Amino acid sequence: MNSINVRIAGVVLMTALLGQVNVNAQDSEPNKWAPEHISIDGQATEWPKPLQFYNNDTKLFYTIANNKDTLFMIVSSPDQASQRRILRSGLSVSINATGKKKGGAMITFPLVGEIMGAPDVPKESRQKLADEWKRQALANVKEIKVEGLTGVTDGNIPANNSYGIRTSAAFDAAGNLVCEMAVPLALAGIPAGYDKPVAYRFRVNSVSATERREFEKALREKQAKASKDGGAPAMPDEETRANMVLFFSSEFWTKQTLAAHP
């Protein structure tokens, strides 16, 4: 095959791949109509494949859907760094019915806490054990954090609540972290039959500034000890470099209109 044909074949392949999922949502793109009998369980089994959009900043695949009274969202994260941040500090989803890409009601989940450690076990067993810990922690999340929802006090509320807010996160068979959320349209400030674009923000959170300072202090002390002992300053090891991804958040905004009943 000559070079021209190779380039043409490459373009055709890339076009086909991009046709499977939109790289970035366009403003005012419509939601999907929510699948019937949808279960918020951290599994994507009821959702059409592939998910509708992909965002490269956050490395998230996602679809936003609704029925006549509820807004649904699903996010799938294959990226290890994004998974670590979500597990440590949560995924925050903001909803602004005015269409402005700022503010709005916000839900943060899953609130897992610190599960990144692993006991002193052989290296070949460590990853398997850490994965099991993560699955168990996700299955036992007790709270979510809310802000700006109509009729709901800001702060942490039970994951199993009486407001109709449902969230779940779990790992699928392929190792993707799947997060699902359902919230009544009224709680998000979206009137029935609303036909204007709604703005959504997805943010993969970083650790708090306090946690970052504590981590950096421990690293400085480790480097200082190495220098005092006559060696070169200790370079960050693999675990330290992996933890440093927790310092940085990533996010994006998009606008979509509500889906009409098909």
Rank of each mutant, 00 (worst) to 15 (best):
F171V: 12
A105N: 03
K100V: 10
G103N: 12
K128Y: 12
I165R: 01
D120Y: 08
N160R: 11
N161F: 00
K134Y: 08
D120A: 14
K128D: 14
I157H: 01
P119G: 11
I165T: 00
K142L: 13
K142N: 09
A192L: 11
S162N: 14
D172K: 10
R126K: 15
I157Q: 00
L149H: 01
V141P: 00
A97H: 13
P191K: 07
G164A: 06
K128E: 11
R126C: 03
D172T: 08
V152C: 02
P158A: 11
K123D: 10
D172Q: 08
I115H: 05
G148H: 09
F109L: 09
G99W: 08
P122M: 12
V198G: 03
G155W: 04
R166E: 09
K134T: 01
E124G: 04
Y194M: 08
D195L: 03
I115N: 07
E114C: 03
G151D: 03
A97E: 15
G103H: 07
K100E: 15
T98L: 12
W133Q: 10
G148V: 07
I190S: 02
A97G: 04
K196P: 04
G113A: 08
A186S: 13
G148K: 14
V183I: 14
A159S: 14
N161M: 01
A105E: 04
Q127V: 12
T167A: 14
G113P: 10
V198T: 08
K123F: 11
D195P: 00
G155H: 03
A188Q: 05
N96S: 11
A199C: 10
A169V: 04
E143N: 15
T108V: 13
N140L: 09
N161W: 01
G148E: 10
E143R: 08
T98S: 15
K128F: 14
L185F: 01
P110T: 04
G155E: 02
V183W: 00
A130M: 12
P197K: 08
K145L: 11
